[in-house]
Design a protein around this nucleic acid. Structure first.
Length: 669
DNA sequence: TGGGGTGATATTTTT
DNA sequence: TATCACCCCA
């Protein structure tokens, strides 16, 4: 084992007899523990790599972990599974597909596909307008994350309109997914758990396959993911989870930080090891972060420390409004960079909501500062990518009615909405899939000859392509499909700008490139498996992001796991952080953790800023500094930033170091 | 078929 | 207020 581990880290790596919970504070080297432990299990315990699985939440984390293990061992061992929860679930589902009633070539629906399906169901089956489809989808997803099946939800309260709508479509939605030979993201976790419950012999098979399970960011697991973990670990003790309850910021999307405490009861032999030495931040930043998070209740107490020195005071900047804030922060950043000769990449501007990025973007652009903005549209949300993916889904899974509907008339094929509707009705009456229904001779009674001809020509072409896929072709078919449908011409005709069409076609070519690469790596499952893996991938999270020298602009959520020399945490205000909605829900603790995550991103310097007034929904509103400012040690704050726009009275209040006094003044200002 | 008018909405987001 | 999705009309 390498010697660059501290004592608790070494203990965590070596402990294997019983399940282990590693409480790893921010910057305490948790990924290092996981990667070293994998190396230890293989290298010193002689455990075959194929029996080890490490699970993360994002592709990026999985990729990084893989790379680090590879570096430790000289190569990534054959059979070692390092993947996201969803990819692990997909692995299980693919191998057990027939037990789940899925045919080979099954599709994965992303959130947008699911919402489309739900919209259809709401309109067709319930006469709803389908306007709330996205929220309904969200609610159903929340149920699936809580491991609640449709029949269990009936017991739930149905007071609000969304829940009521969701309850009506939930079961139907699942049925439709299965009829289309499709699963959604949440099913990737839930179906394996259901299968394991019903068929213990299959569970046994997987238990003997995965004998040691390591989980990163454990505080982000939801109820269903926990069930999957519990099923796989069983009576065996091969489990190491690493997490930090103080960095749990995803409860709103189903994460269940209580899973940390539940381990203790579900695994009585649980060993708990705390990692409290922080290798990232200066002492003062940690002191402030500790003070803040000390206001939250804790199951496990922990106190971060570091030996990197105390560091400069945390600067607090107040400006008159949000425009001044952006101007001021960017000016400070430039000034600082000039003085220290640092790189743009050393800076991050963090905020609570995406909309806050705008003014900062504007200021940075004004000064020609290169910046990286996280949280744009994902690659798979582009309509050209969705189109091509729909084609590929349909040829790998002819039962995928959703894909059929998306592309039957894109590009134009003279199959208008009337024909499509008639086809849908006809297929439903025959309990047939759309593609299949096209070949039914009875269709002539429903549609005009011309429409039938167009539809059958299309259907025949799809079947031709399917057969080529079934015969084992992959990239070649993809290229031919794009050529056959004349997609490039269609893009050029449908874009106002030339560059627009070129950009979109560029995206399509990138997609083909990815498919070609994955096809080479992927040995089993053919094009269908490539498409499924692709659906789980986000091609935008490229590695070279931080290689470029850019200022990072991102939400606090997006910043988790990252670190920067110099952090500006902006909009440190009541109603923003903590967010208004959270205050109303009484959910201050998660907001405090969010602030904590923000503070602990900083290595050397930290600046907090807030505005006295801010435009909200077009109205100018008075703002108060965040209550979290009161929770930071006053002695470590420096309010003396130049030109703080304070009146004399405010300065007096500030001099006393009492925020309360300042706040009173601000309130009456 | 595309542009403009209309109305709903306004935290965080990965897979 | 800004944005976006959707619908309707020319």
């Amino acid at each position: 084992m390498s010697l660059d581990l501290n004592l608790p880290q070494q203990e965590a790596v070596r402990h294997t007899g019983t399940p282990l919970l590693v409480l790893a504070g921010a910057g305490s080297g948790k990924t290092r523990v996981i990667t070293q432990k994998i190396a230890y299990l293989i290298g010193e315990r002689g455990m075959p790599a194929r029996h080890i699985a490490a699970v993360t939440f994002t592709n990026k984390a999985a990729r990084e972990m893989k790379a680090r293990v590879g570096r430790l061992l000289g190569q990534t061992p054959e059979g070692l599974r390092i993947s996201t929860f969803h990819a692990l679930g997909l692995d299980i589902i693919r191998r057990e597909a027939r037990h789940l009633g899925l045919r080979p070539g099954f599709s994965i629906y992303d959130n947008q596909d699911s919402a489309n399906l739900i919209r259809d169901l709401m309109c067709r089956s319930f006469g709803d307008d389908g306007k709330q489809a996205e929220r309904t989808q969200w609610r159903i997803s929340a149920w699936k994350n809580d491991f609640l099946q449709p029949e269990q939800v009936l017991l739930e309260d149905k007071s609000d309109a969304i829940s009521a709508a969701a309850m009506r479509v939930y079961a139907d939605y699942n049925r439709h997914l299965r009829t289309c030979n499709a699963v959604d993201f949440d099913d990737l976790i839930m179906l394996p758990v259901l299968l394991f419950r019903e068929q213990p012999e299959i569970l046994d098979k997987w238990r003997s396959r995965i004998r040691y399970l390591l989980i990163d960011e454990y505080q982000d697991t939801n109820a269903t993911q926990y069930e999957l973990v519990r099923a796989l670990v069983g009576e065996r003790q091969g489990l190491t989870v690493v997490g930090d309850d103080d960095q749990s910021i995803y409860a709103w999307r189903g994460a269940c930080p209580e899973n940390l405490a539940r381990l203790q009861t579900d695994f009585p032999d649980l060993r708990v090891i705390k990692l409290e030495q922080n290798y990232r931040s200066m002492g003062r930043i940690l002191k402030a972060a500790n003070a803040l998070i000390g206001n939250n209740p804790h199951v496990y107490e922990k106190r971060l420390w570091s030996d990197l020195g105390y560091g400069d005071p945390i600067r607090v900047i107040r400006t008159a409004n949000e425009e001044d804030e952006a101007e001021r922060i960017v000016a400070e950043l430039l000034h600082h960079r000039f003085q220290k000769g640092s790189r743009f990449g050393d800076y991050a501007i963090l905020y609570r909501g995406n909309h806050q990025s705008r003014l900062f973007e504007k200021q940075l652009a004004l000064h020609n500062v290169p910046y990286y903005l996280s949280g744009g549209t994902s690659f798979f949300a582009y309509s050209e990518i969705k189109d091509i993916m729909a084609y590929l889904r349909l040829v790998t899974n002819p039962e995928d009615d959703n894909a059929f509907l998306r592309i039957v008339n894109t590009p134009r094929r003279e199959i208008g909405p009337t024909s499509v509707e008639a086809l849908v009705r006809f297929a439903a009456s025959r309990h047939s899939h759309l593609l299949n229904a096209c070949f039914d001779n009875a269709i002539h009674s429903e549609l005009k000859t011309r429409a039938v001809n167009s539809i059958q020509a299309f259907a025949n072409w799809v079947v031709d392509m399917s057969q080529r896929v079934a015969a084992g072709e992959s990239v070649e078919v993809v290229r031919d499909i794009i050529r056959d449908i004349g997609y490039e011409t269609w893009l050029i005709d449908n874009c106002k700008e030339r560059e627009d069409a070129e950009r979109r076609m560029g995206n399509v070519n990138d997609l083909v490139e990815w498919i070609s690469r994955l096809s080479r790596e992927q040995k089993e499952g053919g094009l269908g498996e490539v498409i499924r893996r692709l659906t789980l991938l986000d091609m935008l999270d490229r590695d070279d992001d931080n290689a470029r020298d850019q200022v990072s602009l991102m939400t606090l959520h997006a910043a988790k796991g990252l670190e920067f020399d110099c952090v500006f945490l902006v909009g440190f205000e009541e109603n923003l952080l903590p967010h208004r909605a959270s205050i109303e829900e009484g959910n201050i603790e998660e907001e405090r953790r969010l602030a904590y995550v923000g503070l602990t991103r900083a290595r050397r310097e930290l600046t907090l800023s807030f505005a006295a007034r801010r435009k909200r929904h077009g109205e100018i509103v008075e703002c108060e500094p965040s209550r979290f400012l009161d929770e930071l040690p006053a002695d470590d704050l420096d309010w003396s930033g130049r030109d703080n726009n304070l009146s004399d009275e405010e300065k007096k209040a500030r001099g006393r170091g009492h925020l309360a006094g300042l706040r009173k003044l601000l309130a009456t200002e």
